[in-house]
């Protein structure tokens, strides 16, 4: 579904990403992990059309989407959740999700029904009439996820969807992501996180970035025992 082929991103003379390749099929969840500044958000920005590629290509459903404007990439079927929430603060939670369903083009009744379902899925129905800027950090995160899901896009690029969530919220969102990946014929989900343990039960594959380079790629068990991952990222042997 999503194929990232040897992409490079440069800011001036600085290589932010160097020949990164990873793919995520329908019904799969791929985790992109690494410390701050490793290039996780840059990678998601690059596949979303926010940063132009210096090299390589991005395919969605077999069709190249690199070089397209972000809104065109979204129209081709890649929904985005940002690291900084980027909610519409002067809209209520419900209106945020309705805005997220912009591309669905359904009648108002069906649209509102879908938006209610998306809010319900992240446990936010009781906060539907609250302005986004009045929500707590975990609620904002869940709302940002609901807004991304509302588009019903076949592919999702979610930047740190588990950030700011506490125990029960984490369980809810993890279960939701697994369910979303498998429904509607299978959606491709790429998530990023600073904490590799977030991928343990969630991700089918894990890509570890360090200083803009891929240092490991494989299943969770494979990458946590990788020597490069231990040296550059974990610092110690992995233990639960």
């Amino acid at each position: 579904m999503i194929e990232i082929q040897e992409i490079g991103v440069a800011f001036g003379g600085v290589k932010a990403l160097d020949k990164i390749s990873v793919s995520c099929g329908a019904g799969r969840i791929v985790g992109v992990v690494g410390p701050s500044g490793s290039g996780k958000s840059t990678l998601l920005d690059a596949i979303s059309g926010i940063h132009p590629l210096a090299s390589g290509s991005v395919l969605l459903g077999g069709i190249r989407i690199d070089g397209l404007a972000p809104h065109v990439v979204a129209r081709r079927g890649l929904a985005r959740m940002y690291q900084e929430d980027r909610l519409f603060g002067r809209m209520t939670a419900f209106e945020n999700v309705l805005a997220g369903a912009y591309l669905r083009g359904e009648a108002t009744g069906a649209l509102e029904s879908s938006a209610r379902a998306a809010l319900e899925s992240v446990g936010m129905n009781e906060r539907r009439d609250t302005y986004a800027w009045d929500l707590a950090a975990g609620e904002r995160r869940r709302l940002a996820l609901a807004r991304s899901l509302a588009s019903n896009a076949p592919a999702l690029a979610l930047d740190e969807p588990l950030r700011c969530l506490d125990g029960s919220e984490l369980d809810l969102v993890r279960a939701l992501l697994v369910r979303v990946a498998s429904e509607s014929g299978g959606r491709a989900i790429v998530i990023s996180d600073r904490d590799i343990s977030a991928c343990e039960e969630l991700c089918d594959r894990v890509l570890v970035l360090h200083a803009g380079k891929a240092i490991a790629h494989g299943t969770f068990d494979e990458v946590i025992h990788d020597v490069d991952v231990r040296d550059a990222y974990l610092g110690v042997e992995w233990s639960q």
């Binding site: 404007a69 809104h71 929904a79 985005r80 940002y82 805005a99 912009y102």
Partner: peptide
Amino acid sequence: SRHGRAAAAVGQDERAAQGIGIDP
């Protein structure tokens, strides 16, 4: 309306609006 919300979305956060398919 759908288009009215799209305009408000662009006004409040252009990048977020683009991320859900709105052409600013």
